[in-house]
Each structure stands twice: as C-alpha cells, then as structure tokens.
Design a protein around this nucleic acid. Structure first.
Lengths: 215, 215
DNA sequence: CACGCTTCGGACGATATGTCCACTCAAGAC
DNA sequence: GTCTTGAGTGGACATATCGTCCGAAGCGTG
C-alpha cells in the first residue's frame, strides 16, 4: 500500500469505526481499494475477512456504472446464510478518480427476527399452515418451454439463440433454476448440452441486468 | 355479586394485574362473569369499561363452542379504531361449570408500527431481478418456523427433538429443502448446526416413510 | 460422578455447479 | 470451393454444496 493511500485510509478510519460501533454488533464496515481489489481496512468483520484479503463478497460489483457514487442497499448473504443489506460509497480523490470504496453490511437477521415476532404479535391471528410450494418445478419447466415453443411455432431444437436467451430468462425468473439439480434437466429439455446452457445463461443474465439497470 | 364469586375474583386478581403489567401499556385484562354478562374486574382499561358494566367488546362471543376453554387470538377493535388481538380463557369451577372468563386484549398498533419499521430496515431492498418463484422461499421458511414456534409457544432454540423432527418434516413437505443452498439458512433458522440439521433430517425422513409406508 | 442422549464443530468423500477450451458443424462471404 | 464466423459439443477442471462421520463437549438423570 503506498503512503498516499495509507494516509487516506487513516483519515477514514474514524468514520469506519464510528459506523461500525453505531450498528454494532449487526454491521461490518469494509474499506476496499478497487485498484487492487483488496480489503484495506475492516471493522467488526462479520464476514471474517481480514485486511489484505481480496474483496470476496462482491461489494465492488457494478461499481463501474457511471453517474453514481452511492450504491444499494442491495442484498447479499454470508456463507452461513445470514442475509445482509449493503450499501457502498465510492470515495474519489481530488481529481475525481475512484480512490477507495466504503461498504457497510448490515446483518438483517436480528431485524427480520424481531420484525417477525412483532408481526406475529400484531398478526390478523389464526391462518392455515400454508400449503405446498407450488407443484413440481418440472411442470413449470414443461409449461414454460411448451408455451414458448408453441408461440414461436418452432421445435425446441430449432430455436434461435435469441429465443433461447429469452426462454432461459423466463425459466430463471420463474425460479426453476434455483431448484436443486434442475440444470441438467433444463438443459435436456432445451435439447442443448449442459455447457451450452451455462453459456446462454451467462449471456441471458448479462442481458437482463443491462436491460433492467441502464443507469 | 355473591360472596363466592367475589372470593374467586379476588383470588384471580393478581393474575389479571400481573398480565396487565407485563404487557403494559399495550394490553387490558378483563374478567367477566358470563352468568350476568358483566365485567367483574378490569386492569388497564383501554376500552374504558368499568366494573359492573356489561361486556361490550363481545369477548364472550362463541364461548359456547364445545371442548375448548381457550379462544383466540382473534381480532377486535376499539371505538377509536385501534386494533386488538384478544384471547379468552374460561375458568371452570370444581364441578366443571363456567365460572369466569378472563380476556386479554392487546393493542396491536404499537407492534404493527414497530414491525413496519423493522420490516423496512430489513427489507428486501432495491433489486431489479425480482419476480421470484412464488415468493422467496425464505419467506415460506420464516412463516413455517414462525407458525410452528408460535403454536408450541416455545422459542425456536428450545424446541424438543420431536418438535424439530416435525418442523423439518413440514419444511421438506413445503419444498424448502429442495431449494438450492437452503440448508445452511434453514439450519440457522432452526438455531442448530448444519450437521445436527442433517441428522434430524435423516431421522425425519425415516419416520416419514415409516408412517407413510407401514408395509 | 458416571451415563445416555444431543448437539457442536470440523473433516471428508461424493455430487453438483460453473468455467474453459479444443474441436465440429453449418451458413454465409469471397 | 475455401475461408470466416458463430453456435454448440464433450469433456476436463476448479469450486461449491451436500451429506456423512466422529470425537468432543453440554446437560439432565439416576
């Protein structure tokens, strides 16, 4: 770490510590150096990261978007399943170049739990045991693929790349892909190889975020 | 009021007062005499009723149902619009006749408000790639666990082994466990370790097939 | 205090997930 | 016909998750 950067980090340390204390023990504060993608300071490390480690939680994702220096809050989660709400701030130096990125990650579990308790207390009472999930996800898969193919009037193995991206987007939106072991089945349903599927999925996701977030 | 009844009321007074204090200032406790349909004692009277007045809020509705001596919680509301959650308990005398009815009315407004605040804090945040399956499986998880815990009246980390088996069975039936990456979160929600979870899951499945398949 | 029963916290092997890449194939461009 | 390009294939790999095991506590009992 060069001395200029170090001075800057030292200058910001009280801010990081203050925020961490304010929200303690439910939040961690991390200072990143985007140039090296390393953690340069961290307070109350919920994520167990240490100074010098690479930035693992992806706080820096999407920071190349233009025109904004504050991001979030957006959802993340810890390896143990705790869910976080995170915000990031880009700290620019005098000539406007990104110098450091400050991230605050709040552990939502306590708040969710408390909220649930209160909600339950305040709830409209009774309520039935909440029925099953949906139906088997394979049915959703069949239906989505079937509809799509029917709509395009083309058998599934003659779909264009663009169509496949679209269809995969729908499958993902429907949550099919977050079902365990669904990928091989889905790839088979689309009559493409597993690897081709992942390629398309990658592109589909890229496209989705571009469309949804044309900042 | 006959002296026998009065003695009974005096005997219960500490209970009423204790409950009222516990939930103060959000709850009132009312003791009714169903024979005369009068309030025979009241603590922290949100509803402004006084001893001797007729029972106005309808706490006694439906108390003719058979086989139960505990009712609710069910919703009611105050003249000023505040909403209440209410429970009633029938207190029988030695020969099984209904002697008194104890009602606890909790003013939900404060809890609802607090719940909203926390919910906002813990909220799913921004996010554009929404449109999930049904709703987030974590909500199903929360709901199932919350209901169960409420039903048993025991915090999740004090559940018995048997209860946990039951609850895990429900989670599995609801499809939560076939959701990718759900296990760590579920284990955490149950406040047990991942390995303990798998152990219980194994037993739960064994049990399920035994019951379903008594061949 | 020993004993039985649970859970904890890791270690580990087994699967499942994602990435990569060299190679094939088909469709147009030249 | 040959070249170029883009999509897809199969399979090797690197990780991540899953599920199992086991010794070490924690705890209520006799």
């Amino acid at each position: 770490m060069n001395s200029e950067l170090k001075a800057e980090v030292d200058r910001l340390a009280p801010v990081g510590e203050a925020i961490a204390r304010l929200l303690s023990p439910h939040a961690e504060v991390v200072l990143h150096d985007p140039a090296t993608d390393r953690v340069v300071a961290i307070w109350n490390p919920l994520s167990r990261r240490e100074v010098g480690e690479p930035s693992l939680l992806g706080e820096l994702d999407g920071l190349t978007e233009t025109g904004r220096d504050v991001y979030g809050p957006y959802p993340k989660s810890l390896p143990d399943g705790r869910r976080l709400s995170s915000v990031s701030a880009v700290l620019r130096d005098a000539d406007g170049k990104a110098g450091l990125v400050l991230c605050v990650n709040v552990d939502r579990t306590a708040f969710e739990e408390a909220g649930r308790i209160l909600a339950a207390f305040a709830a409209p009472v009774v309520q039935q045991p909440r029925v099953l999930f949906e139906r088997d996800w394979t049915e959703t898969l069949n239906e989505l693929v079937g509809d799509f193919v029917r709509d395009r009037g083309v058998p599934v193995d003659r779909l264009s790349r663009r169509d496949r991206l679209e269809l995969i987007g729908r499958l993902e939106a429907a949550g099919v892909l977050s079902q365990r072991r669904s990928v091989p089945t889905v790839a088979r349903a689309l009559k493409i190889s597993r690897s081709a599927f992942y390629q398309l999925l990658g592109d589909a996701r890229k496209e989705a975020t571009n469309h949804a977030d044309p900042a």
